[in-house]
Amino acid sequence: MTDPGVASYLDRLRAASRELPPSRREELVAEIRAHIDAASSARGADGPAAIRNILDRLGPPEEIAAAALSERHSHSAYPEPGPRHRGLSVRDLAAVLLLPFGGLIFLVGWFVGVVLLWTSEDWTVRHKVIGTLVLPFGVVFPLALGALPGPGQPAWLGASIFLALLAAPIISAGWLASRAHASRRPRELQWA
């Protein structure tokens, strides 16, 4: 038997948590329902007054739904340093490898790297701009240039420019790899 007060309480909870994914919403409703059942059998009284008291202690359904929504995006103040919080995701790793070297795959690989870079949430816009501009097509540009004979150019100068251009995209990719997730850290350190 479901108390009408409980039914309308759960309806309000369901309505207030519309923005949760359906599976998460049903799980939350089931947990609150189980709490009400456990509380009413623990007190050995499931009269209307006892039920009202249980619902009062649970708090407004809207408040529970709001907590569920905000918890979805928060993390523990003491995150376990593990692969989930530190290190690169597979996507980020692909971006970091494709930016310098993807151009060697018929130039297309570099574009894929750029898309992965810009669609990732682990870098700020500043990182993304630098990652894109240093250097377009990665090592392809210096490799193609280095193959050309430099007319009237001292050999050491050509070699230095070649090495610098070759190193730039690799260094920029390494820097991106070390900066991934930097944009998330402040949020994890918040208390609330």
Binding site: E31, H35, L58, G59, P60, P61, I64, A67, S74, E80
Partner: peptide
């Protein structure tokens, strides 16, 4: 938790917290 004075105001909000602790593997 309710036995600690002033720790929990709305008992229902514990459940979303438990869901996060599950998700974070704690």
């Amino acid at each position: 938790l309710g036995e600690v004075d002033g720790l929990v105001t709305s008992e229902g909000t514990i459940y979303p917290l438990l869901a996060r602790l599950r998700r974070d593997g704690l």
